[in-house]
Amino acid sequence: MSTQHSDDHKDPAQAPRLRVLLGEVTAMGPGKAMLLDAIRDKGSISAAARSVGMSYRRAWDLVETMNQSFREPVITTAKGGSGGGGAQITEFGETVLARYRDMERKACEALRDELHAFADFLAEDHKP
Rank of each mutant, 00 (worst) to 15 (best):
F92P: 03
A59H: 08
S51R: 07
K42G: 03
Y56R: 05
R99G: 05
A48G: 03
A27W: 02
G53P: 03
P12M: 00
E72F: 15
F92R: 04
A78Y: 12
A117S: 09
A98E: 14
R57W: 11
K42S: 04
A123K: 15
S44M: 02
H5E: 07
G53W: 07
F121C: 05
L115G: 08
I45C: 04
H5Y: 13
G93F: 11
F70Q: 01
V74M: 06
M66F: 08
Y100G: 04
A13N: 14
D61W: 14
H126F: 11
V20I: 14
V52S: 03
A13V: 06
L97Y: 10
R19I: 00
D113A: 10
A107D: 02
H126N: 10
A117T: 10
L97R: 07
Y100V: 02
R99D: 12
G43P: 04
D113S: 09
D113M: 05
K42R: 08
E72M: 10
L35I: 03
E24Y: 07
P30C: 01
E104V: 12
D7Q: 15
F121D: 13
D11I: 07
A33V: 06
M1D: 14
E124A: 08
K79H: 14
R58G: 12
T95Y: 09
T3K: 10
V63E: 11
G23H: 02
D8Y: 15
A27Y: 00
G29C: 00
R57K: 11
M54Q: 05
L97C: 03
R19P: 02
P12T: 00
D8E: 12
Q68A: 12
I39H: 13
N67I: 06
M103W: 13
R58P: 06
L62I: 06
A38S: 03
S46W: 11
G29E: 03
Q4K: 08
G86L: 05
L18P: 06
H5A: 01
G81W: 11
S69E: 08
M34Y: 12
G83P: 11
S46R: 15
R19N: 05
E72Y: 15
T95S: 09
E94A: 08
